[in-house]
Design a protein around this nucleic acid. Structure first.
Lengths: 197, 197
DNA sequence: CTAAAAACATACCAATTGGTATGTTTTGTA
DNA sequence: TACAAAACATACCAATTGGTATGTTTTTAG
């Protein structure tokens, strides 16, 4: 990677981290510059404005992260239902970067920016649409496996599962322990079992 | 209500609406003043600072609204399970003030403010804790009714249901139609049925 | 090596922010 | 009615914001 591309990557990475903690609007360009030792000239050389940078964070960083966090486990699936549970479990309890207090970067951004900015909404929609597709594929496999009922509405169930994750990342912010995560995971397991043949 | 109390109420109500649309941090005191024809002097007579006003919105407005939207339907419950579904249905599809695009005021504030400000977190936790208690009571009634399994973990199920609502209010922001709400409600119905004896 | 383009650095700016200082008006009460 | 306190109004301020103008340095291509 060239030096310029490196600078750009550093900016995106640090912006991502700050946005995760403080939100997009509350993260100032100056904040990003202060924590990267990059200057304003460099920033506005790489990005037309703050919005373009924010969109690049979604399209170039979050999209790929989401994919690698979903695709890889989803492919090596002996039992799709167990894998779905494991993904949720690992995402909630075994991913140190993601903290209960700060929730999920993607759903934070959806909550804050989707209503405010159409470009953000569309970029985030793409991230979530491709994630949902992965779940739907896993569920189709589970149908073929005869693991779950053939009458299962895979789109509906995938939507329900993702919705639950988005929700617990929200509710979790109210608490100071991971108890509610465990509570959620237990009931998720029951729910997933209710799908079985 | 005295005139001063009226002014205070107007400020809280308009602040609530603006915060719902734009978020707490993005809603400036000047915005609130401009849309209420109240002056800055009056604002800072009624509230020590912006934070105190925000907390008053939660404690004096949102808490009561949430209660009346939950308690009343929850009490007149012939079948608790059906009532839970109806509450969700009405909240999502029959409450004009709440728009898909802007989600739910409470969960918006949780997402934005809980990690940033301990006072907000605690105030919001109280709102959600009392809401969850209502659901737990309804579920206990459903157990006594023999509607749902006696082995049901009411706390866990209540948490799961609320979590789903928080989630769909988040995911819904990505879309321009209420299709995903219907999708969610359909699967919620299936899930609730899976709880039955 | 050299010129031009890419990459970065510095200094600045107008607008907006939450908040304050210092008033004036209104209201309750003796 | 008198007067003090409550309620409100106006003018200001320092800090922060995203962004720009105008540089200098570093790469790259011929």
């Amino acid at each position: 990677m060239g030096k310029a591309a490196e600078t750009r990557k550093i900016l995106l990475q640090k912006a991502f981290e700050l946005i995760y903690i403080n939100g997009y609007q509350a993260t100032s360009v100056d904040d990003i510059l202060a924590t990267t030792n990059v200057t304003k000239g460099a920033f506005y050389y790489h990005f037309k404005n703050k919005e373009e940078m924010g969109l690049a964070v979604i399209k170039e960083l979050m999209h790929d992260t989401m994919q690698s966090q979903m695709i890889e486990p989803m492919l090596s699936a002996p039992n799709p239902l167990d894998i779905i549970y494991k993904i949720m479990h690992d995402l909630l309890l075994e991913t140190p970067f993601l903290q209960i207090k700060y929730g999920c970067p993607t759903h934070n951004l959806i909550q804050e920016m989707a209503p405010l900015n159409e470009n953000f909404r569309e970029a985030l929609l793409e991230v979530m649409a491709s994630t949902q597709k992965k779940f739907e594929t896993a569920l189709k496999n589970a149908i073929d496996n005869r693991t779950i009922k053939t009458t299962t509405n895979v789109k509906q169930v995938a939507n329900f599962i993702i919705t639950g994750y988005a929700g617990i990342r929200n509710i979790g912010k109210l608490y100071t322990s991971d108890e509610c995560y465990h509570l959620y995971l237990n009931e998720l397991k029951s729910y997933l079992n209710s799908l079985r043949t």
